[in-house]
Structures are given as structure tokens and as C-alpha cells.
Design a protein around this nucleic acid. Structure first.
Lengths: 352, 352
DNA sequence: CGATCGACGGCAATCGTTTGCCACGCTTTT
DNA sequence: AAAAGCGTGGCAAACGATTGCCGTCGATCG
């Protein structure tokens, strides 16, 4: 173990909770006053080398851990950052959480993970209630209306991910441009009739992706249609598949990989070959997109990096409260990863 | 929004942080003393109906949110439960987190997610440092030695998941028995030469699964071999696949689905058909096990329920601190889910 | 040799909330 | 009519750490 064999003075029984060591205990042992202990531990230059060493030794000896509640009461800083996601079970957040976790831990912060269950009200309520216990929050996929978001940003330092709103710092992965790439890819393959499989219309990224798809359509002189919106989650895949087939398209671009992956079994069930009869493009390149059947052509973004950047932005603001929050939005590029779910449309196959 | 339009007194500028409302503010407004406010809000029977209503109205009016730090300082209870997992990017934890999250939120607790990065030292250190900020912790896949775990359980209420250790409450999914089922399934298909693909030997469940596999072997008069151990993560799949092929087995049981899924592309690359040439069994039935190619035969456990039960056990203990911690271990059954990665061994195919 | 300064450590207030105790006034009991 | 009881609200002490201020001491400077 080495680092910290905890709890020496517990004694006989493991169950009885031992009263934690406070600076007062250390003060008593070393014969100084609590404030001196505080200084010896936090601003070592403020006390003489001798007492400092004596106190630090005692602190180590007694296995002292500062009470962050008490500290927070004065300083107002809790050392906790919340990360709000709309659904823990969406693998999209894996990378993000990993990125935030890593950076937060490195900076000595704790990460409070909150599942908002896709509800804006829930989100606002949680954030408002916990604002005293938080130094800041990272909003991944916020469902909040702009106004509420701006207001909240006045209460507590905020960084939004994949959501662009005036007055709130944010980092977005440029999937809209990526969508353009995907459409180009499909058009080059010969597709003309492409539909967008829409996600919940509360999702900012859904609207952004659809807009981008329309724009891409105009570039190629096409008016793309949309099916849905469908509720989040893989289960929507069946309905989405049926809708796409009903629309008679030769290709579809999905709001996210979860939809795309969910469509595949239903398509197989109905005897539709992918990509032979229908090309499918996903979005986000989540865990599973590379090993589903067929592996998914999708938009890959540096999601872990997005988490890291979001934390970095937030912490930078916390560390110098004087500086005005730079309202700059960091945009990270998304690339098209072509796998095996896209190919020429059936007509061209018949012709060729 | 309805529920809580926050921050009224902020005024002109959204950036300036508004000083939060305290009970003292409410006291001043309503003409009582802070302690009365506290009572009006927490033990409504203790004050007269008139003042209670007046105070509660004022609290609502001012949008009061209690400072949990200050409250924790006295009561010692922080309303936060930590959930420790060894790797956020392992989909195995999805269900667990979802289960804990759900139950914790319902009980008004916040969930602090901690990634221990598979390190026991890290785990102990985090837990020890944060013990003052936590009401309890749920250890999913603890890497701690028994002794440290028992000691820690004396410092802070603990519930372990998938780890059975004396003196610590726990809920385990009975994958060992499930392994027996898997072996039976393979033996019935005609397999005799089955290897176990081992995970990190720091993982308690890895050892439990291997023991169970040995026991199953004895029942069928076989001595199964083991390959590995391999480091956690899907990337180990290639090496695992090579090792299994080198061992010349006709079937393998993997420590977890991540290994199994990771093996598949490598096997395909080497021209090994699954299940034609090699049957593969996974464990845990994670996200992706049903849509990889071929879909995985694996052990399915009620992991979300495990999370719920773990929280329930923990909260039950917190609510009645008098009651001795019942050291009972809850065991949840795992079942074998047969998909398409298992079939008869190649010899038998040749004979048939 | 007396004035000035810096180093060091103690004192006490502070953060926001909870809670044991007391006081006051009214009702009920003997 | 005096005593006991109860309902209600105030007072003040906690909880643990931080921090501005002050006093003391020894060293340095003019």
C-alpha cells in the first residue's frame, strides 16, 4: 500500500467510526494554536521552518485530511465540478467523461456526474440547487433554452459542450461541417435521395445537423427530407428503419450512431442489405460503431479532447476570477470515417 | 421554466456573481432570528403556523437554497455518495451507474463518480481523502486487498459490488455459477478443449471466474487451461486471440465481453471463423455484445439492479445508524445468453 | 544606544446552519 | 389562586478551517 494506511487510532473495532482528526488536534499535539497549523500547512513560508516541520510531521502522523466542507464555507470553493449529461447509458459520453475526469483529477477537482434524463427542467433544477456545492459545471448536451442558460451562467461558471449560445463559453465538435462531408461522400457514390433521421428536437445538435444537411442539399441542388424525430436511444432504430424505407430513400444520415446501430437489425430482418440496398451514415463514432455489422460509416470527433478543453476553459476562469470570461467558442473538427455501411445506391449497381 | 427562475436580485449584469441568499437574509426580512428560520424550514411542527408560512413564503420568494457545506459541517452528512469504478470507458459500468444514479437521485443524494484507473492505491487514496465529503461509497470492482478494504469500511460506510470480502456488505452477480452454465453449454456442443482468457489478476471477479471454470472442468473430467492475464480493455483482444489460437483450443471463455469483442476482428483477420472454427463466450453482456459480429454468447446479469440494490443497502445503513451493518451478501443470478458466437467444434463438423 | 523593521505566532471573527437551553406568556390543572 | 404544562421564539454555542490584525522578540540601521 505504501501511500496511506488509514486510521491508526481506531483500535479494537472496525465498525465504530473514528472521529476525524482536525487542525485543533494537531495544534494540541504540537503545542500551537489552530491558526498556526492552518498556516503551516497552506502557506509554509508564513511560519518558521522548525514549527512548520513539526506540524507537518504531526499532520502526517495523525493522518490528517482537511475538511473540505469547512474550507468551502469560508473560501466558497468546493473543489467540485459537475458534469451534466443527458443519459449515462449513451456511449457517446464515454470519451467526454474520460476527458473531463482526467483533467479534473489532475487539477485536484472532484467530478460530480449528473444525469439530467434529457429534461431541461431537471437540468435547471439540479444546477440551481447544487450551485453552492459546485465551483462550476460542464454542460454536455444541454436541453436548456438560451435564456435559462444565460441566466444560469450568471450564477455559476459554465462551459457548454456541443451547444453554442451567446454569453456562454463553449466547445463544440464541428459535426455540422462533418455532415457536409458525409453528404458529399454519399453524393459521390451516386445517391440523390438521402433522408435525415432526426433525434429529439430538444437537442441543439440535432437542429444544427439538420440545418447543415439542408445546406449541403442546396449545394447539390437537392431537397433532402427528414424522418422522425425519434426519441433518444437505440430502441428507436426499428421505427427509424421503417420510416426510412417508407420514404424510399437510398441513403440516410442519422442523428447519431445509436440510431444507426439500432436500425441495422431491423433492416436485416426486413431483408434490406446495407449498403447494397441502403447506405447508412451515423454520427459521433461511439463505442460499437466500428464492430457492428456492417461497421458504420460515421463522423468521428475528438470527444475526449472536447472534455479536456472544456475543463481547461473552466479552470482557467476559476483561477483568475478577475479576467472577464472569454466568450470564445472552441471548435474542434470532425472527420468522416468511411467504413462499410455506405456504398453505391442500388440503381447504379443495376446499371453497372 | 416554471420551477425555478433563478437569481432575481442580480440586476443588470449577468456576469457578476450574486451573493447567495442565507437564512439570515430570510430572518431579516421576516423579522425573526435565524434559528427560527432554520426550524420553520426543517421541522415545521416546531414553530407556529403563522410564522412558518410567512418564513416559507419568504424563502420561496428569495429563492433560498440551503448551503450544504454549512449543513454538513454540523450534521456530518453531505448528501453525497461516491461510486468508484475502475474505468469509465468500460460499458460494463453503464448499467451499474444508471442503477445507482436512479436510486440516489430518488433519495436526494448526489452521485460522485470516481474513476480509479484500475489502481488499488489510487482507490484507497481517493476514498481516504474524500471520506469527510462523503456519506458512503459504492465500490464497483475494487482492487483493494482485503485488509485495506476492511479498514476502510471502518472509516466510511461501504458497499462492494462484485467483490466478496468479510465484514463488508456486498452485492455480487453470480457469474461464477454462470461460467458453469457456459462450460456446460460448450461441452454439450462437443467441446473438450476450452481455455479461459484471463483478465487482470488484480480483479477479484477474474479469480472467481477462473476458479469456477476449473471447478466446472473437474465435473466434466477436464483440466482447462488459461491464457493471459491480459490488461483490461478491448485492445487486449488481438493478443488474446493469438494466444487462444496458439493454445489450439476449440472454444474459449473470456473474462469479459470487451476481450471477446476485441478478439473478433483479429480472428476474422486470421481467417478463423466464429463459431465454425472457434467458439467464443463473453461475460457481462455489455452494450455491443448483441450487435457485434457474430453476436456474442455471454453471461447476462442484472447489473442495473445490482446498482440499485447496492444503493438501497447503503442508504438503509445510513438511515438507521444504530442498527449493526448486516454483513449479508446479496447474490444476484446470472444467466447464459446464447447468441451466435458458439457452435459445435470443427472436428464434429467434419465428422457430421 | 534608541528607533525601525521583519519574522513569527496568538487572538478572535467569520462562513451558514443546526440545536440545546432558556424565557416568556398562555392554558390547564389541582 | 398558585402550580404545572405547553407552545413559541430567542440566545448562543457549536462544526472546522481561514485570515486580518496585533503583540512580541530579535536583528539591523542610523
Amino acid at each position: 500500500m505504501g501511500s496511506s494506511p488509514p486510521g491508526d487510532q481506531g483500535g479494537s473495532d472496525g465498525v465504530r467510526r473514528t472521529r476525524p482528526v482536525t487542525i485543533t488536534d494537531i495544534a494540541r499535539v504540537t503545542g500551537v494554536v489552530p491558526s498556526t497549523v492552518s498556516r503551516a500547512l497552506n502557506k509554509p513560508g508564513r511560519v518558521s521552518a522548525a514549527t512548520r516541520d513539526r506540524i507537518q510531521a504531526a499532520a502526517r502522523e495523525l493522518n490528517y485530511v482537511p475538511n473540505s466542507q469547512a474550507r468551502a464555507l469560508i473560501s466558497g470553493r468546493t473543489g467540485t465540478i459537475a458534469v451534466l449529461i443527458s443519459d449515462v447509458t449513451n456511449p457517446f459520453y464515454f470519451g467526454l467523461i474520460r476527458g473531463t475526469q482526467q483533467r479534473l483529477k489532475a487539477a485536484g477537482y472532484a467530478q460530480l456526474l449528473i444525469d439530467t434524463e434529457d429534461s431541461g427542467e431537471h437540468e435547471a433544477e439540479m444546477l440551481h440547487k447544487m450551485r453552492r456545492s459546485l465551483d462550476g459545471a460542464i454542460l454536455a448536451a444541454s436541453r436548456l433554452p438560451e435564456g435559462a442558460l444565460t441566466t444560469l451562467a450568471g450564477e455559476i461558471p459554465l462551459v457548454a459542450v456541443n451547444r453554442n449560445v451567446r454569453g456562454v463559453q463553449s466547445v463544440v465538435i464541428d459535426t455540422p461541417t462533418g455532415i457536409g462531408l458525409a453528404v458529399e461522400h454519399l453524393v459521390n457514390l451516386g445517391h440523390r435521395d438521402i433522408v435525415y433521421v432526426a433525434g429529439p428536437d430538444t437537442a441543439w445538435s440535432n437542429r444544427a445537423r439538420w440545418r447543415s444537411m439542408c445546406a449541403a442539399g442546396e449545394r447539390y441542388g437537392q431537397r433532402f427530407r427528414q424522418v422522425g424525430p425519434f426519441p433518444r436511444g437505440r430502441r428507436s432504430g426499428s421505427a427509424a428503419a421503417d420510416a426510412v424505407l417508407a420514404a424510399g430513400a437510398t441513403a440516410c444520415v442519422c442523428f447519431n450512431d445509436l440510431f444507426a446501430i439500432g436500425m441495422l437489425p431491423r433492416l436485416r430482418e426486413r431483408g434490406v442489405r446495407v449498403p447494397g440496398d441502403l447506405s447508412v451514415v451515423g454520427c459521433d463514432d461511439i463505442f460499437g460503431a466500428d464492430f457492428c455489422h456492417p461497421p458504420l460509416t460515421t463522423l468521428t470527433g475528438p470527444i475526449e479532447q472536447a472534455g479536456e478543453v472544456a475543463v481547461a476553459m473552466l479552470l482557467a476562469r476559476l483561477d483568475e476570477p478577475g479576467a472577464e470570461p472569454d466568450r470564445r467558442t472552441v471548435i474542434l473538427p470532425a472527420t468522416l470515417t468511411v467504413r462499410e455501411s455506405t456504398g453505391p445506391p442500388p440503381e447504379r449497381l443495376a446499371n453497372g
